[in-house]
């Protein structure tokens, strides 16, 4: 790969790569601060100190990461599906009022309206078209369920560790699913995602960010809903 081509790939994928890099830095930061916080707590309860390596293998670390992942994927899943059917007048995050629903085959360029450069599954019709037509939301849903599942298993192990260290009986996974700890971890993440999404949808009506595709053009009227109608 030439230097020229590397530069081009980096530029064309700058958004995904920058966020991927920031994710890795944040995760490393979470691991470092997480082990420090864990050891601080151990000190106060007379437990043994653990290394970073052991912390990375702990259920406590796994549960902390997974509980945040699940809420992010829930947020995107809900947003992707909700915006098919719900609109917000004047928001760039929304279709126009009256455009609710999944659109005609012609609008969506599927089946016989597919073009030569359309994705293969959009051209094929049948079940493949049905699946591919919802693949973005479905992948988010699968990742949400998988990460919520991971949170439940890791959170359960972490919870039982605490139970044992305070000489209480461990609980079963089914018990943990109805335990306050599981729902506290879950809902504290959901509420923040839902607030952020709701406020983004309505803030985008009246506020602008020059140059961002998440915003209308600065001079666009408040009642204009979709950014591409200008």
């Amino acid at each position: 790969m030439t230097a020229e081509r590397v530069r081009r790939v980096l530029r064309e994928n700058g958004l995904s790569l920058a966020f991927g890099a920031m994710f890795l830095v944040s995760l490393a930061g979470q691991a470092l601060s997480g082990v420090a916080a864990f050891n601080e707590q151990q000190l106060s309860t007379g437990g043994e100190q653990i290394s970073l390596g052991r912390y990375l293998l702990s259920s406590s670390f796994a549960a902390d990461v997974a509980e945040n992942w699940q809420s992010e994927y829930l947020q995107f899943f809900l947003y992707i599906f909700a915006t098919v059917w719900l609109v917000q007048h004047g928001s760039t995050e929304s279709k126009q009022v009256g455009e609710e629903g999944d659109g005609s085959d012609k609008e969506q360029r599927v089946g016989r309206y597919a073009q030569p450069d359309s994705p293969r599954w959009a051209r094929l019709g049948g079940w493949r078209e049905v699946v591919y037509s919802r693949s973005l939301g479905l992948v988010m849903l699968v990742l949400f369920i998988a990460s919520w599942g991971a949170q439940s298993v890791a959170g359960w192990a972490a919870y039982n560790n605490d139970q044992l260290s305070t000489r209480q009986d461990p609980v079963t996974w089914a018990d943990y699913l109805v335990a306050p700890d599981f729902w506290n971890r879950t809902l504290q993440n959901w509420q923040s995602e839902l607030l952020a999404v709701g406020s983004m949808a309505i803030f985008a009506v009246f506020l602008r960010q020059r140059g961002s595709p998440e915003s209308k053009r600065v001079g666009a009227p408040h009642q204009e809903t979709s950014s591409d109608t200008s």
Binding site: L17, A63, A150, V153, W156
Partner: peptide
Amino acid sequence: VNGTKAVFIGYLVLIVIGLVYFTALGMAHQ
């Protein structure tokens, strides 16, 4: 397009490895 596809697959692989790892960690501690 190939660079873009590599980023796409990279994200998917990263997420799947993470999910398998966290689930396995939880199970290993039982």
